[in-house]
Amino acid sequence: MSNPAESRFRPHRWMRSLAGPLFGAACLLATFSGVVVLVVLLASILLAAIQGKPDNPWYAIGPNLRELWGLLSALIVNRQSSNPALAGFRIGIVGSLWLLGLVALIGIPVGIAAGVYLEEYAPPGRLRRVVQTNIANLAGVPSIVYGILGLALFVRGMGFRPLALGSCLLAGALTLGLLILPIIVITTQEAIRTVPVSLRQAALALGATRWQMVSGHVLPAALPGILTGTILGLSRAIGETAPLLMVGAAGALRRLPTGPLDRYSALPVEIYNYAKEPGREFQTVAAGGIVILVVLLLSMNGIAILIRDRFRRYQ
């Protein structure tokens, strides 16, 4: 006697056997498409930066790499100039490093502390759900909105002159800190959720306080994920242009910033300004700046991977 359930699902067996390979092929195609687009984009940027000479075709790898190295070395040393032969990104690179340090000092402690509180200390209830929902929504807000907020809140001080910072490094860093704050909070919470509940119960059973449990057991176990999320958040901050334009980052600056209250420029802002110029030589300069920015971002992502692997190794 045949099983009724088996006879019911028998007509759909061929669909299930076909759906698996089709889904796997679709995922492979999507991954391959993303890789191809990325490779084409990077190759077009490199070709625009190299701008091969008649005796130096695009497929001459060695000479083109030497030419690219010479271009990047000059762009790192030179300041912004109206002459493309003398143009560079020295002011923007220094300003971006200043921003990176200030954003790390402002955003990382606040974001991690907020994530720990929401996950370990905040009592469950409607207020926590509302705060959690708003943080998730803020992570998807366009960066230009944060620029408008930074302009009103930090640059102009909401109309109160004593609170207005003006177009200085600190205002830009506070704006970018707000930009990455939801990302750090969410990644901190996700990293804490990966810690087994048994670890918390064992620490509390041995007489540890909640603070001792969180600081001595939960945070060290979640540290790889937290550090990875914070570095990726900083990578997003250093590549933003729209918020810095809104809060008054200088398009052209001749003096290096020496403190948080100085005027500044940033690498993405200077790339944007060079890219607007009509001359082909300026397009080469802008492409070289993009290469510098991409190398900086890839270096930060590589550091995040190394930190995550090192801490996982010692756990």
Results as ranks from 00 to 15, higher is better:
residue 10 R to M: 10
residue 15 M to H: 12
residue 21 P to L: 09
residue 21 P to Q: 09
residue 22 L to Y: 02
residue 29 L to V: 06
residue 30 A to P: 00
residue 30 A to H: 01
residue 39 V to E: 12
residue 40 V to N: 08
residue 41 L to Y: 11
residue 48 A to D: 11
residue 49 A to M: 11
residue 52 G to P: 15
residue 55 D to F: 09
residue 61 I to L: 13
residue 61 I to T: 09
residue 64 N to A: 12
residue 68 L to E: 03
residue 72 L to D: 02
residue 72 L to H: 02
residue 74 A to T: 00
residue 76 I to F: 11
residue 78 N to F: 11
residue 83 N to Y: 03
residue 87 A to F: 09
residue 95 G to I: 03
residue 101 G to L: 15
residue 101 G to M: 13
residue 102 L to Y: 06
residue 105 L to W: 04
residue 105 L to K: 04
residue 112 I to G: 00
residue 113 A to H: 01
residue 120 E to R: 05
residue 126 R to L: 13
residue 136 A to V: 12
residue 139 A to F: 06
residue 144 I to W: 02
residue 144 I to N: 03
residue 147 G to K: 01
residue 148 I to A: 13
residue 154 F to R: 00
residue 155 V to W: 10
residue 156 R to L: 08
residue 158 M to P: 00
residue 159 G to I: 13
residue 160 F to G: 03
residue 170 L to T: 02
residue 170 L to K: 04
residue 171 A to V: 14
residue 176 L to A: 11
residue 180 I to P: 06
residue 185 V to A: 07
residue 190 E to V: 02
residue 190 E to H: 01
residue 191 A to H: 04
residue 194 T to M: 13
residue 195 V to A: 14
residue 195 V to R: 13
residue 201 Q to R: 15
residue 202 A to T: 10
residue 207 G to D: 07
residue 208 A to P: 00
residue 217 H to G: 08
residue 221 A to Y: 12
residue 234 L to C: 04
residue 235 S to H: 05
residue 239 G to P: 02
residue 244 L to R: 05
residue 244 L to Y: 06
residue 244 L to T: 05
residue 245 L to V: 09
residue 249 A to P: 07
residue 249 A to D: 04
residue 249 A to L: 13
residue 253 L to C: 05
residue 255 R to Q: 14
residue 256 L to D: 03
residue 258 T to E: 12
residue 261 L to E: 11
residue 261 L to H: 07
residue 268 P to K: 01
residue 268 P to V: 06
residue 272 Y to M: 11
residue 276 K to L: 15
residue 277 E to N: 12
residue 281 E to F: 00
residue 283 Q to L: 13
residue 283 Q to F: 10
residue 286 A to P: 02
residue 288 G to K: 00
residue 292 I to G: 03
residue 293 L to S: 12
residue 295 V to C: 15
residue 296 L to W: 09
residue 310 R to N: 04
residue 311 F to E: 01
residue 312 R to K: 10
residue 313 R to L: 09
residue 314 Y to I: 14
